Simulated assay, not measured.
Amino acid sequence: MEVVVTLQGKVEMELTLVPTAEAKKMPVGMGRNPPNPLPFPKRPDISFSWFRNPWNACCFVVCRYYRGRIICFSLILFLILLLCCAIYAFPGYLVKKLLNA
């Protein structure tokens, strides 16, 4: 018969060996200090779960690294659109100037 052992979890424990005289002074459980309270972790105010709040998570990831590139691309696109509108409207204004209308 073969016995297979799998690791199910880990336990951290502390063992202190003391002489008998000291053990009789402090019976089991009486010599322990209360647990040290740990400070609360600094968690962000928003949730980064893609399922709960995909827009905030996307903005956090994208805007953090590509903010400057997005602003430059938007500015260049705006200037190109403005130039295209000017080129589209220029012949009409030119005809009006030539005919003094």
Rank of each mutant, 00 (worst) to 15 (best):
P39T: 05
C59E: 12
V5M: 05
Q8C: 04
W50G: 06
F60R: 13
K24P: 04
M26V: 13
I76D: 06
C59L: 11
L99Y: 07
L7Y: 00
L75K: 06
D45V: 06
V18Y: 07
L75E: 03
P37G: 00
Y93N: 13
R32K: 12
C84I: 10
F90P: 00
K42I: 13
A21L: 08
L7S: 12
E22H: 05
S74G: 14
G29P: 09
N33P: 06
P41E: 11
F51D: 11
K25S: 01
Q8M: 07
L98D: 02
C63F: 01
P54L: 02
W50A: 06
Y88E: 13
M30H: 04
A23Y: 15
A86C: 08
P35N: 02
P34V: 02
N56Y: 00
E22I: 03
P19L: 05
R69A: 11
G31R: 05
I71Q: 10
P19C: 15
L82P: 04
G92A: 14
V95M: 01
P54S: 03
S47C: 14
V61P: 03
V62H: 09
P41K: 12
R32W: 03
F60T: 11
T16S: 04
Y93D: 10
V28S: 09
W50L: 04
V4M: 09
C59N: 15
Y65D: 07
L7Q: 14
G29Q: 07
G31H: 05
P37N: 01
V4F: 09
M13K: 13
E12P: 01
M13Q: 14
D45K: 11
P41M: 10
F78I: 03
F51V: 13
I71F: 12
V95S: 00
M13D: 15
T6L: 11
C85H: 04
P37R: 05
F90Y: 12
C59Q: 12
P37Q: 03
F48C: 12
N100K: 10
I80W: 06
R52N: 11
G29N: 07
R67L: 14
A101P: 01
S74P: 04
N100M: 02
P27R: 00
M1K: 11
E2V: 12
V4C: 04
C84M: 14
F51E: 15
Q8A: 14
E14Q: 10
N100V: 03
I80Y: 07
P54F: 01
E12L: 07
L77T: 13
V18T: 01
